[in-house]
């Protein structure tokens, strides 16, 4: 019985290796572990799983996704930064890595990683329960301005997470203190959307895609998106600028990275593999099907991208009073 299963899987494995593998490179000779600092089922998890699946096809070894969740992403990012730099542990890193250290939650910064490629960027939306009285974002904004500090509750991710910062940035752009709306920490966007639908929250500021199934089901509405232009997959949702004249845009980006001192051979192979993954039909179809934004930068470009993001997110956090260092 075991034999049959093993053969089948081996057969499947052989099919994978038959796909264009790197002929000259020795890396990887064994399965690669791919860390994900966020829980299974969330947006980052979905992106890392599709990348892992396609990398497996490109590079010829399994990429096993391991979810190391907790502490608003601190645990997983630290685990990747501290992993042995042997080329067999890589991971997905998210915008939070340019925020957590400002909040004094970790010592780990983007400088503790070897960037390998930027794969995606998603702007936040503003979602309310379908029965909510606010028909557009201007009405919600007026209600927020009229409310007592801490009276209204919003969620979308953990304390000090990217969507928390998106809320703070939006409030500030409206001339309100960042703590005017109380943040309810949640373990990712899915529980927040569930709580929104259950009537436990006033609104959420997670990305539109993370609330998409709830929106499609008619349980939630997205009032605006905090981006410079409308999203290709959700063309009916106005940007903040269109809806209320506030020019505020941010986003949750995701990229693949390894620990520092990542072997050069593995870095070259990963860079090439991620480039092919990003251009593949499967990746584009998947990302479009799920509504994820497609943004790409190669290993060096991703490094520069993170350096710029670190400065701008740090500035935003300091002015919002979320920074401690």
């Amino acid at each position: 019985m075991t034999k049959t299963t093993r053969r089948t899987l081996l057969g499947a494995g052989a099919a994978l290796t038959a796909a264009p593998a790197l002929a000259q490179a020795r890396w990887p000779v064994r399965p690669v572990q791919m860390l994900c600092p966020w829980a299974a089922g969330g947006g980052t998890d979905a992106v890392v799983r599709i990348i892992a699946t396609l990398l497996e096809k490109e590079v010829g070894q399994p990429f096993n996704v391991v979810n190391r969740t907790g502490g608003s992403g601190v645990v997983g990012h630290a685990a990747l930064a501290q992993a042995a730099p042997d080329g067999y542990t890589v991971g997905i890193i998210t915008a939070e890595i340019c925020m957590l250290h400002w909040a004094g939650l970790t010592e780990v910064t983007y400088r503790n990683f070897t960037p390998l490629g930027l794969m995606n960027n998603d702007p936040p939306g503003i979602q309310v329960n379908n029965t909510s009285p606010y028909r557009d974002v201007r009405q919600l904004a007026d209600a927020i301005k009229a409310s007592r500090p801490g009276q209204m509750k919003a969620s979308g991710t953990g304390q000090g997470g990217i969507w928390h910062l998106a809320l703070a940035g939006w409030l500030q752009a409206m001339g309100l203190p960042a703590g005017h709306v109380r943040w309810v920490p949640s373990n990712g966007a899915a529980p927040a959307m569930q709580d929104l639908a259950a009537g436990g929250l006033d609104f959420t500021t997670n990305s539109v895609v993370e609330g998409r199934a709830m929106i499609d089901a008619g349980r939630a509405r997205s009032l605006a998106v905090m981006a410079t232009e409308r999203l290709g997959v959700f063309p009916t949702i106005p940007t903040l600028k269109e809806a209320m004249g506030i020019d505020y845009a941010t986003g949750a980006w995701r990229g693949i990275a390894g620990p520092l001192n990542f072997p050069a051979e593995a870095r070259t192979a990963m860079n090439a593999g991620l480039d092919r993954v990003f251009k593949s039909r499967e990746y584009n179809e998947f990302m479009n099907a799920r509504g994820f934004g497609l943004s790409y930068a190669d290993a060096d470009g991703f490094g520069r991208y993170m350096a710029a993001a670190d400065v701008s997110l740090g500035d935003a956090m300091k002015s919002a009073g979320l920074a401690r260092s």
Binding site: A40, G41, A190, A213, A217, G218, R290
Partner: peptide, 25 residues
């Protein structure tokens, strides 16, 4: 609603999206 009941359905949702069977009514 695309909300995973547990870790198994979380994985299954990814597969559903990947195969174009987007969760929703």
């Amino acid at each position: 609603f695309g909300i995973p009941g547990d870790t198994i359905t979380a994985i299954a949702i990814g597969v559903l999206y990947m195969k174009g069977l987007n969760p929703g009514p």
